[in-house]
Simulated scan of single mutants.
Amino acid sequence: MHDLTGFQRDLLYVIAGLDEPHGLAIKEELEAYYEKEIHHGRLYPNLDSLVDKGLVEKGQRDRRTNYYTLTRRGAREIEARREWEEDYVGADLSQTQTA
């Protein structure tokens, strides 16, 4: 996951959290999170990149609609990232001191 952009990592997380989402559903989730419009020219090339890297599979629901699912490798990458974050951030940020 070290070679992914933050946007691509967020795409992975959204796909992992939804049941075979289509592109528009992913777009809507990210727009809610980022609080700004996500253009198709940003979304779909990044989804294709995740497919090319073997982290996501793309299926066809009908002639116009694709759906996306996490691969086993994608799930392993998310888990490894979560473990790495845990090493540095820990479970309880409420006890961090402010400057």
Rank of each mutant, 00 (worst) to 15 (best):
Y34Q: 03
E31A: 05
L43R: 03
S94F: 15
L70H: 01
I15R: 00
R72K: 14
N66P: 08
L18V: 09
P45D: 05
N66R: 03
A80S: 15
D48Q: 10
P45I: 02
A32K: 13
E77A: 14
G74T: 01
D92N: 13
T71D: 03
Y13F: 13
W84V: 02
G41Y: 06
E57F: 04
L50K: 00
E20D: 11
I78E: 06
N66V: 05
Q60G: 07
E77C: 08
R64C: 08
E77L: 08
I26A: 02
D48K: 10
R61Y: 12
T65C: 06
N46T: 03
R73K: 15
R73Q: 14
Y13S: 08
E20I: 08
I15K: 00
S49D: 10
A75T: 13
L24Y: 12
G59D: 07
G74L: 01
L47S: 01
K58C: 11
E20Q: 09
Y67P: 06
N66T: 07
A99E: 12
R82V: 01
Y68M: 01
Y67N: 04
R61P: 02
V56F: 03
P21N: 06
R64S: 12
E20Y: 06
R73G: 10
R61F: 12
L70I: 14
D48G: 10
Y33A: 10
L50V: 00
K27G: 03
E31N: 06
R73D: 11
I38T: 05
L50D: 00
R72C: 05
E28K: 08
I26N: 00
G90T: 00
Q60S: 09
Y67H: 06
E37G: 06
G74H: 02
D52E: 12
K53A: 05
R81D: 10
Q60M: 11
E20K: 09
I26R: 02
E83S: 10
I38K: 02
D62T: 11
E28Y: 14
A75G: 10
G17H: 08
E28D: 13
D62M: 05
E31P: 07
T71H: 04
A80V: 04
R76Y: 11
V14D: 05
K53G: 05
K27L: 05
W84G: 06
E31V: 04
R81I: 04
E85L: 15
R72P: 03
E83A: 10
P45C: 07
R42Q: 13
S49I: 01
E77S: 13
D62W: 02
E37L: 09
Y44C: 07
R61Q: 14
D19H: 12
I26C: 04
H40G: 06
G23M: 02
D48R: 08
D62S: 11
I78P: 01
G74A: 04
I38H: 04
T98Y: 15
